[in-house]
């Protein structure tokens, strides 16, 4: 956060700044990804294997396709997958977390058991299995991500709801004659909504990375889709002949986006945590 020191920003301001910058980048990437037509990445054998230049910022590949355009389209697809996956995952966590915390002991033990079950299997393994079960491709990977990434957030929400429910002021509220529904809306929701937002932000980079990893292994999106994972796995073959730009730029872009989400999620988490809130 060198920049924020120079500008003399506090944590809230720098987080806000990072949020704005990131959303601009993400919107731009997603939009251009959608607006690009296939011509941009049509093969042009005259400029095969070109190193980065002003014509082709990220160079071209062995078919003469512009790597910059491919990267943008890949990122756009990855972000889409990540976003849908993360939101799906978060929805599952919210539903299960709230059920566990409010619907009695049986529901709680079932949900807890499910959480433990999913956490005991490595993400990638269950992700691959689920993606296969849904027939692979875009649908498979989105379902795979949504169904594998919920347990940790569900656990946070469950314990958060339970903790808030037992606090004195919630009990006082009952004695003030307030209904359960009113208490859920006015007391409990405001406490867990920030947790959920942070949860989604922190889920997102995981989702993207896992999507890229599965696709890289050839088990995710199909090869004709311009996903980052596919670009990376294809470029592996050309690294040994010195075409570093094929993997370098797409990789770096992916890394930057993932890191920024991670950073913002972390900052937000600190800001909503009362112990750190005023730093």
């Amino acid at each position: 956060m060198q920049l924020s020191k120079q500008l003399n920003l506090n944590k809230r301001q720098s987080t806000l700044l990072a949020c704005i910058v990131l959303s601009i980048i993400v919107c731009a990437v997603v939009l251009t990804g959608f607006l690009y037509d296939e011509d941009r990445i049509a093969s042009n054998l005259e400029v095969r294997n070109a190193a980065p230049s002003f014509d082709h910022f990220f160079g071209t590949d062995w078919l003469g396709r512009d790597m910059f355009s491919r990267t943008i389209m890949g990122l756009s697809l990855s972000i889409g997958v990540g976003l849908v996956g993360a939101i799906g995952s978060a929805s599952i966590s919210i539903i299960l977390g709230v059920i566990a915390a409010t619907m009695g002991k049986v529901a709680d033990s079932i949900v807890t058991w499910l959480i433990d079950l999913f956490l005991s299997v490595p993400h990638l393994v269950s992700l691959i299995l689920i993606a296969f079960a849904f027939g692979g491709g875009f649908k498979g990977i989105v379902f795979g991500i949504a169904l594998t990434h919920w347990p940790s957030l569900a656990r946070v929400i469950r314990s958060e709801v339970m903790q808030v429910r037992s606090l004195d002021f919630v009990q006082v509220s009952r004695k003030m004659g307030k209904s359960r529904w009113w208490i859920a809306k006015e007391h409990i929701m405001p406490h867990i909504v920030p947790q959920i937002i942070v949860g989604i932000l922190l889920l997102f980079p995981h989702a993207i990375l896992h999507e890229a990893a599965v696709t890289f292994l050839g088990l995710g999106l199909s090869p004709h889709e311009p996903a980052i994972g596919i670009i990376l796995s294809e470029s592996m073959r050309y690294l040994s002949v010195g075409m570093w730009w094929l993997a370098f730029f797409p990789g770096i872009c992916l890394l930057i986006i993932v890191r920024m989400f991670d950073k913002i999620g972390d900052n937000l988490r600190m800001l909503i945590d009362p112990h750190h809130a005023h730093r």
Partner: peptide, 12 residues
């Protein structure tokens, strides 16, 4: 003394 957020983004 403590640094605290007053309203929104300002710290005092």
């Amino acid at each position: 003394s403590f640094k605290q957020y007053t309203s929104g983004l300002r710290q005092h």
